[in-house]
Design a binder for these strands. Structure first.
Length: 925
RNA sequence: GCCCGGGUGGUGGAACUGGUAGACACGCAGGACUUAAAAUCCUGUUCGCCGAAAAAGCGAGUACGGGUUCGAUUCCCGUCCCGGGCACCA
């Protein structure tokens, strides 16, 4: 019997499906383990070999945990709402629901082919009304909540209203607009509309006007993390700043808890740092400077600084051009220049501003007064100061800040040196370790001490406060698109009114046209019925559905709650979450926030969703190139090219060729001729009878013809080989190129394993003899290695471990039942099909999946251990057999008594004997 | 520019807390079986030296230069290179 992998794999995949082998129950005596993959967006392109990498790793880990006696939740679903489906609909006239469905079916077929142990009875789709009913429900929770800063948690807004009635907002400063202050009497006197307006400034999901990233080509606004280098992440279209009414998530209120939570979870350092940088917490102070202006319309200028200690080095102030205060600062003499500059700033797109960082600015004609020495400081405006951060105004200290320094030099502003010889007059020095000079009462004081002295003084004078700032902004939460969750909100006389829970889900209506509605509204604004009901016409962004999906898997059919408390208490946090790094500041931050809100409101019992995150690397494509002599249809083999990359002086075109018609580097010339019509009559200049292609490692993509379809690999080598090979390629976290050639090695291993036990004609050969100590050693060594490697995600070395094991058993001609059965169990997570088949052939009942993991016994490995004493000065090594149960003293005695060691010592006593790992003993001469 | 990672044979990569560097596999070379091919198996494969060859031996070697240590791919300092993230956040 040959190893006919396709037959075996099809058989077992059907069997698992029939028996619902992977169905998981929410009630079990076993400890739980929740292993989750980032669910895919079902694109039309299908899977390439890079996609399943993380799924394979999580599948192996899930199966391993199941064998170790855990109740394992390992679900899968689809992030089905999103822009690409809608773009496709606009271009091809296919409804997104239809194309998404087709894509999902294809994904599913490809996934099934690889033999994953997903519990498909728990499948979810974010575009399914029974799912987004709860996305809408959670949105309403956010809408109906505010963040209590004193208790550091979200609470129902109804409670806040009660507080306002009795004490106003003196203990609850308004996060949306700090200038809103009122007492109880004032609150009770407000109109309903005014009260609602104020409450909107407290809600965790709120609607407000703000500068947003507007992408004309996509016809929607985008969140900050969806804009990269001034263009849209999807499609690379230009993005401009626009003031629009938008929904937001008040994620800034959670900044501190999002930071603090990072300390309690296992994310990679790089990932934690990315999130930390995104949140961007900085400790500083706000300082009010008195202002002397022509119009006397402004009394003070408030700036934000992290370096109050450098206050004597302030040579100018800079205000963001967008600030309203600018109007009042400009003097008659400077008015024209200021207006001209403001017009210039307005004309610049975000993109231009980022691309060319020109030093620009203009003097307003007003001055600020240094509170300590009365110095007059000119106030400038410049685009390098951002309106949205801090107070939108800074105190510039050129000798200590690079940007201020460049600005001062450019505009010939005199620079005050407060750093003594730490400042060279050429470059700013941002040090915090200098002794202050030229600094009035701070002279001679180290900077770090000065900070506090200045702050205390400013506080006494009532013109300064300590202030923490965050770089993170509230997240834009509405999209002017069709293919997303509708907001369960009605607008009545300008007031947002939530739909009652009984009317959820608010289903997405069918539309004929995906064209934007009037005035930047979404396609829903084109539906008369929708508009008549005064429903919100925006839809939620892609990250809405993915911010909580891990909870739905726990209780996917529940129509009374997003997830029963019982289910979420049982499954708890995701123990292992696997996915790419591209969601570092998007999905991973939003889902962490939603989890915290649901926790605060008492709906779940944990406030971090993911206990451990593993980021899988990308599998890159290994592209192949052919070289065509320019203007001809003749292709030159790579080795025949000149050093300059030309052929006999003629230029050649380097063209991507489909990797699937190249064997290693050898082009299949006949397949090439039929690949594209224009190559039908291609001529080849061969070397040694072959056409050799060039190669390069690039991102895997259709346009580079370097994608490899897992279907083809599975067809040719089998799913078990494919799974093991993807792991064997290297550590899961590392990006590495795909190399189809290398798969032979893993395939040979499985064939060898099969042949070791299955005779071509006689079938399975198993003896029931007792294993020898040598055989037991091989087995237990392998059990230990695989268990350790699997637990620490070192799947590549685990695969090597299996290979070594089979090679050794092959040498021993060991075909014993007592060795095979435990081996099948430890191999099952990696190669589920072949092990299931052999398990059945061996006459074992049930599935190998339900076997119990063999226990590693040290005695088998220890028995024949050896010691290797090394004379460290002589570098020589000798082998001594020692029972490693011996104590260190006994080992030393045996080693020193050894003949070779005696020779090294030559009668002298050793300086010392060092007993180290790997059975090495060093004898220092 | 700043902040993280990382640099090991022809290639992917091993070496877990400092302890026989290069496991395992690909590729390559040679060989066996075969009319032949496929499949399978065996041997060799870091570099250099010594040798007709084999066995054995010697020397160097984990980007480069230094340091700590009996001992460094691993720890420390400096330089170079590659990958990723952030980029006027005061």
């Amino acid at each position: 019997m040959e190893y006919s992998f396709r037959q075996i794999e099809k058989k077992w995949q059907a069997e698992w499906k029939k028996k619902e082998t992977y169905r998981v129950s929410n009630t079990s005596d076993k400890p739980k383990c929740y292993v989750l993959d980032m669910f895919p967006y079902p694109s039309g392109a299908g899977l390439h070999v890079g996609h399943p990498l993380g799924y394979i790793a999580s599948d192996i880990y899930s199966r391993f945990k199941r064998l170790k006696g855990y109740n394992v939740l390992h679900p899968m679903g689809y992030d089905a709402f999103g822009l690409p489906a809608e773009q496709y609909a606009i271009e091809h006239g296919v409804h997104p629901a239809v194309s998404t469905d087709a894509n999902i079916n294809n994904f599913r077929r490809q996934l099934d082919n690889i033999g994953f142990c997903f519990d498909w009875s728990r499948e979810i789709r974010t575009s399914d009304p029974s799912y987004y009913k709860w996305t809408q429900w959670i949105f309403l929770q956010l809408f109906e909540s505010y963040y209590d800063r004193r208790e550091q948690k979200a609470k129902p807004i109804a409670g806040l209203v009660e507080i306002f009635k009795t004490e106003g907002n003196s203990h609850h400063p308004c996060p949306g607009d700090a200038s809103i202050r009122f007492d109880a009497a004032e609150w009770n006197g407000f109109t309903e509309a005014r009260q609602q307006e104020i409450l909107m400034n407290y809600r965790l999901a709120y609607c407000g006007y703000g500068e947003v990233n507007w992408c004309e080509a996509l016809g929607t606004v985008l969140a900050n993390d969806e804009v990269v280098n001034g263009v849209s992440e999807r499609g690379g279209f230009p993005v401009v700043k626009k003031k629009l009414r938008q929904w937001y998530l008040r994620i800034t209120e959670y900044a501190d808890r999002l930071l603090e939570g990072l300390e309690r979870i296992e994310f990679s350092e790089a990932m934690k740092e990315m999130q930390t940088n995104w949140i961007g917490k900085s400790y500083g102070a706000e300082i009010d400077f008195a202002v002397r202006s022509e119009r006397n319309a402004v009394s003070k200028l408030r700036v934000y600084t992290t370096r109050p200690d450098t206050i004597f080095g302030v040579d100018f102030m800079v205000v963001a051009p967008e600030l309203e205060i600018v109007e009042d600062l400009k003097s008659a003499a400077q008015a024209a220049a200021v207006d001209e500059y403001l017009a210039y700033v307005k004309s610049r797109s975000e993109r231009e501003r980022m691309a060319e960082k020109k030093i620009t600015g203009v003097f307003t004609g007003s001055y600020a007064i240094n509170p300590f020495d009365g110095k007059e400081i000119p106030i400038w405006i410049s685009e390098y100061v951002l309106a949205g951060y801090g107070t939108g105004a800074i105190m510039a200290v050129p000798c200590g800040d690079e940007r201020d320094h460049r600005f001062a030099q450019h505009f010939n502003i005199p620079i005050t040196n407060i750093l003594g010889d730490q400042y060279d007059g050429v470059e700013a020095n941002p040090t915090k370790d200098a002794i202050l000079q030229n600094s009035g009462f701070l002279n001679g004081i180290p900077m770090r001490e000065a900070t506090n002295i200045v702050l205390e003084k400013l506080e006494q004078m009532g013109i300064g406060n300590r202030k923490v700032n965050y770089r993170m902004r509230d997240a834009a939460f509405s999209r002017q698109r069709y293919w997303g969750e509708p907001f369960p909100i009605q607008w009545k006389n300008g007031v947002a009114v939530p739909l009652p829970e009984t009317e959820l889900p608010l289903e997405l209506p069918h539309v004929e046209s995906y064209k934007p509605g009037p005035e930047g509204e979404g396609p829903l604004a084109n539906i008369p019925d929708w508009v008549a009901r005064e429903l919100e016409t925006n839809t939620m962004p892609g990250y809405a559905g993915s911010s909580w999906y891990f909870l739905r898997y726990m209780d996917p059919q529940n129509d009374q709650a997003f997830c029963s408390r019982e289910a979420s208490d049982y499954w708890g946090q995701v123990d292992l979450y696997i996915g790419g790094t591209e969601h570092a500041v998007g999905h991973l931050l939003y889902s962490r926030m939603w989890t915290k809100v649901l926790y605060d409101l008492g709906h779940i019992g944990f406030d971090e969703p993911f206990k451990k995150l593993v980021n899988q690397g990308m599998i890159q494509g290994s592209s192949r190139f052919v070289y065509r002599i320019n203007g001809t249809n003749t292709f030159v083999s790579k080795g025949l090219l000149d050093a300059e990359g030309t052929y006999q002086g003629k230029t050649v075109d380097k063209l991507h060729v489909d990797v699937n018609i190249v064997d290693g580097y050898n082009l299949d010339v006949n397949a090439f001729r039929t690949w594209k019509p224009e190559y039908e009559n291609a001529e080849f200049l061969l070397e040694d009878g072959a056409y050799i292609c060039g190669s390069e490692v690039e991102k895997m993509s259709k346009s580079k013809f370097n994608t490899v379809n897992p279907d083809h690999i599975v067809e040719k080598f089998g799913a078990d080989t494919f799974r093991m090979y993807e792991m064997f390629l290297g550590p899961v976290e590392i990006s590495k190129p795909w190399d189809t050639k290398g798969i032979e090695g893993v395939h040979r291993f499985l064939k060898k394993f099969w042949r070791l036990y299955v005779d071509e004609t006689k079938g399975l050969q198993l003896s029931s003899e007792e294993p020898t100590p040598e055989e037991l050693k091989v087995l237990h060594k392998t059990i230990r290695k695989i268990e350790e490697d699997t637990e620490r995600f070192s799947f590549n070395t685990a695969v090597s471990g299996f290979m070594i094991c089979v090679n050794e058993l092959n040498d021993l001609k060991c075909r014993k039942r007592a060795i095979l059965l435990p081996l099948l169990v430890i191999l099952a997570p990696y190669a589920p099909h072949i092990t299931e088949e052999l398990w059945q052939m061996a006459g074992e009942t049930g599935s190998v999946l339900d076997a119990s993991y063999p226990v590693f016994e040290e005695k088998y490995v220890k028995e024949s251990s050896k010691a290797y004493p090394v004379a460290i000065n002589g570098k020589t090594r000798t082998e001594i057999t020692i029972d490693l149960n011996a104590t260190q003293e006994e080992v030393e005695a045996i080693v020193l008594a050894n003949e070779t060691v005696q020779k090294w010592l030559d009668g002298k006593a050793p300086k010392k004997v060092v007993y180290v790992k790997n059975r090495m003993i060093n004898v220092v001469l």
